[in-house]
Simulated scan of single mutants.
Amino acid sequence: MNVLIVESSRELSVLWQRPLANMGARVCIARDEEAAAALLREIEFQVILLDLMLEQGSALSVADFASYRQPEAPVIFVTDTTFFSDGSIFQLCANARAFLPSSTPPEDLVAMVAHYGGALCPG
Rank of each mutant, 00 (worst) to 15 (best):
M1P: 08
V3E: 06
I5H: 03
I5N: 06
I5W: 03
I5T: 05
V6C: 07
V6P: 02
E7I: 14
E7M: 12
E7Y: 09
S8C: 05
S9K: 11
E11R: 14
E11H: 10
E11I: 15
S13G: 08
S13P: 03
V14Y: 12
W16V: 09
W16E: 13
Q17Y: 01
Q17C: 10
Q17D: 05
Q17L: 08
R18M: 13
P19I: 14
P19D: 14
N22T: 02
N22W: 02
M23N: 13
M23L: 08
G24F: 08
G24R: 10
A25P: 01
A25V: 05
R26P: 00
R26E: 14
I29W: 14
I29D: 06
A30Y: 10
A30T: 11
D32K: 02
D32W: 02
E33V: 03
E34F: 04
E34I: 09
E34Q: 09
E34D: 06
E34N: 04
A35P: 00
A36I: 13
A37E: 07
A38I: 02
A38Q: 12
L39T: 03
L39G: 03
R41C: 11
E42I: 08
I43S: 02
E44G: 08
V47S: 00
V47W: 01
V47A: 07
I48N: 03
I48T: 13
I48H: 02
L49D: 01
L49Q: 05
L50H: 09
L50D: 09
L50W: 08
D51N: 15
L52I: 06
L52E: 12
L52G: 03
M53A: 12
E55L: 12
E55N: 11
Q56H: 12
S58Y: 01
S58K: 04
L60C: 01
S61C: 01
A63D: 08
A63E: 06
A63K: 06
D64I: 00
D64F: 02
A66T: 11
R69M: 15
Q70K: 11
E72R: 15
E72K: 14
E72M: 11
A73C: 11
A73K: 04
A73W: 01
P74F: 07
V75G: 02
F77E: 10
F77G: 04
T79H: 01
D80T: 05
T81L: 06
F83H: 12
S85H: 13
S85V: 06
S85C: 11
D86H: 10
D86R: 10
G87H: 10
I89A: 04
F90W: 08
F90R: 09
Q91S: 15
Q91F: 04
L92Q: 13
C93K: 03
A94T: 11
A94S: 13
A94D: 12
A94H: 11
N95I: 14
A96N: 10
A96L: 12
R97Y: 07
F99C: 07
F99V: 10
F99L: 15
L100S: 03
P101W: 06
S102I: 13
T104Q: 04
P105W: 07
P106Y: 07
P106E: 09
D108G: 00
L109V: 15
V110K: 03
V110R: 04
A111P: 00
A111D: 13
M112D: 10
M112Y: 13
V113Y: 01
Y116W: 15
G117N: 08
G117A: 09
G118T: 11
L120W: 05
L120V: 14
C121D: 05
G123W: 02
G123T: 14
